[in-house]
Amino acid sequence: QIFVKTLTGKTITLEVEPSDTIENVKAKIQDKEGIPPDQQRLIFAGKQLEDGRTLSDYNIQKESTLHLVL
């Protein structure tokens, strides 16, 4: 699982696999929060994550925290 922290300070927990794409993660966030993926920007280690890449591409491991910017 990974954590996604929103600007409001809320933390969302997501069940993911390293092979999941960023697009996939955004879809999971939409399921939980109702935020359309095209409004979501995910930041990890100061980098904006691209939809077509996977979590493992960015070396995002379990218990990692991503930041969600709208």
Results as ranks from 00 to 15, higher is better:
1 Q>D: 05
1 Q>E: 08
2 I>V: 06
2 I>C: 03
2 I>E: 01
2 I>Q: 01
3 F>C: 05
3 F>K: 06
4 V>T: 01
5 K>G: 03
5 K>H: 10
5 K>T: 13
6 T>A: 05
6 T>N: 06
6 T>Y: 14
7 L>W: 15
8 T>Y: 14
8 T>S: 15
8 T>K: 11
8 T>Q: 11
9 G>W: 04
9 G>T: 03
9 G>C: 08
10 K>G: 07
10 K>I: 09
10 K>C: 13
11 T>P: 04
11 T>N: 06
12 I>L: 11
12 I>N: 01
12 I>C: 03
14 L>C: 04
15 E>D: 13
15 E>N: 12
15 E>T: 12
15 E>P: 06
15 E>V: 11
16 V>P: 01
16 V>D: 00
16 V>L: 07
16 V>F: 12
17 E>R: 07
17 E>S: 11
18 P>M: 13
18 P>F: 15
19 S>I: 07
19 S>W: 13
20 D>S: 07
20 D>R: 02
20 D>V: 04
20 D>Q: 04
21 T>S: 08
21 T>P: 04
23 E>K: 12
24 N>I: 15
25 V>C: 06
25 V>Y: 02
26 K>T: 02
26 K>W: 03
27 A>S: 12
27 A>I: 14
27 A>H: 12
28 K>E: 03
28 K>R: 08
29 I>R: 00
29 I>S: 01
29 I>Y: 02
30 Q>K: 11
30 Q>F: 14
30 Q>R: 13
31 D>V: 14
31 D>E: 14
31 D>G: 09
31 D>T: 10
32 K>M: 11
32 K>Q: 11
32 K>G: 04
33 E>Y: 09
33 E>G: 05
33 E>H: 08
34 G>D: 05
34 G>M: 05
34 G>H: 07
35 I>C: 06
35 I>F: 11
36 P>H: 11
36 P>K: 07
36 P>S: 08
37 P>M: 14
37 P>S: 13
37 P>K: 15
38 D>A: 12
39 Q>S: 08
40 Q>C: 09
40 Q>K: 02
41 R>L: 12
41 R>D: 06
41 R>Q: 12
41 R>Y: 11
42 L>D: 00
43 I>K: 06
43 I>W: 15
44 F>D: 01
44 F>V: 03
44 F>A: 03
44 F>I: 03
44 F>S: 03
45 A>D: 12
45 A>R: 14
45 A>T: 05
45 A>C: 14
45 A>H: 13
46 G>N: 07
46 G>I: 02
46 G>S: 05
46 G>V: 02
47 K>S: 09
47 K>T: 13
47 K>F: 10
47 K>Y: 09
47 K>V: 15
48 Q>E: 15
48 Q>T: 15
49 L>A: 02
49 L>R: 00
49 L>I: 04
49 L>H: 00
50 E>K: 08
52 G>N: 11
53 R>A: 08
54 T>P: 05
55 L>A: 03
56 S>H: 12
56 S>L: 12
56 S>C: 07
57 D>V: 04
57 D>Q: 08
58 Y>S: 03
58 Y>C: 04
59 N>R: 07
59 N>K: 10
60 I>V: 08
60 I>E: 01
61 Q>K: 13
61 Q>E: 11
62 K>E: 11
62 K>I: 12
62 K>W: 11
62 K>C: 10
63 E>A: 11
64 S>R: 03
64 S>E: 08
65 T>S: 05
66 L>G: 02
66 L>D: 01
66 L>E: 01
66 L>V: 09
67 H>K: 07
67 H>F: 13
67 H>T: 13
68 L>P: 00
68 L>D: 00
68 L>W: 02
70 L>D: 10
70 L>N: 08
70 L>E: 09
